[in-house]
């Protein structure tokens, strides 16, 4: 299989970026996109060049580390799929691909296709947890949680922290990410006591990190590899407003 690749190169955050062109004609349609880059990097290294820096760890779509923009599609042209789970059979032979990093002010480019997503950790750190210390917990079946509620909490909890929602949003908002964690924890009786502090602190941290505001375009849920729904954003907005009013 052949592909015509234009891949974003950028030596560091300060350096000027550009697309570099590579024509590959010895690809297998069952290769994943990172495997294609491994293959290309071996060629680059052997011809004395600098390999393309990119991150991809589990290659099963669960660790959240990979993610590029391919021909304008965040992660993948295949809906709800991470870059690592995208195989070359999703493209046509001899297709031209433009591969770029996730772009957002809060995700500075580190090198080539690598971005710094530590802002997402800092949002979690601001309140994305239940404050239980080891040893405190009561017997696990003490609080019954209805099946539907547990499923709904899981739907929100499934976020892999890849940042695709931010990369696709025209405002680079992290509302889907933030609201998914708020909802996961606040829906459950164990997480309810900290709900108000959680929503205030996490939203405030999100703003401080330079993510934009949410204007409800719904672009985020389209690219989310875990299919996280924007109803999480609506729920979070309601909690946040309630908190503001009660102040």
């Amino acid at each position: 299989m052949k592909l015509d690749l234009h891949i974003w190169r950028q030596a560091s955050f300060q350096a000027k970026g550009y697309f570099e062109h590579f024509a590959l004609d010895d690809l297998d349609e069952h290769m994943s996109v990172p495997e294609m880059l491994d293959h290309l990097n071996t060629q680059i290294i052997k011809s004395g060049g600098q390999p393309i820096a990119f991150e991809s760890d589990c290659r099963e779509g669960i660790c959240g580390q990979c993610g590029f923009v391919i021909n304008g599609n965040v992660h993948s042209p295949v809906a709800g799929t991470t870059t690592c789970q995208t195989h070359l059979r999703s493209f046509t032979n001899a297709q031209t691909l433009y591969i770029e990093p996730f772009r957002a002010a809060a995700f500075p480019i580190k090198k080539d296709l690598m971005v710094d997503r530590s802002a997402l950790d800092r949002i979690i750190q601001a309140g994305g947890y239940i404050g239980v210390h080891t040893g405190m917990a009561p017997e696990a079946n003490t609080h019954l949680i209805a099946h539907n509620l547990a499923e709904k909490a899981f739907d929100a909890a499934a976020c892999i922290g890849c940042g695709a929602c931010v990369a696709t949003c025209k405002n680079a908002s992290a509302m889907l990410f933030t609201s998914a964690k708020i909802n996961h924890l606040s829906l459950l009786p164990q997480g309810a006591p900290e709900e108000q502090a959680r929503v205030t602190n996490m939203i405030q941290q999100m703003d401080e990190e330079g993510f934009g505001a949410c204007s409800n375009t719904g672009a985020c849920e389209v690219v989310c590899p875990q299919g996280i729904s924007i109803t999480n954003i609506a729920d979070t907005n309601r909690t946040w407003f309630k908190k503001q009013i009660s102040n």
Binding site: A137, A140, L144, H147, L185
Partner: peptide, 22 residues
């Protein structure tokens, strides 16, 4: 046993029966 108790307290959304039990 303590681990399951702790994980539930942390908000790990384990599968539940319709009755709400784990």
């Amino acid at each position: 046993e303590a681990l399951i108790n702790h994980a539930v307290a942390q908000g790990v959304p384990f599968a539940r029966e319709y009755s709400g039990y784990l």
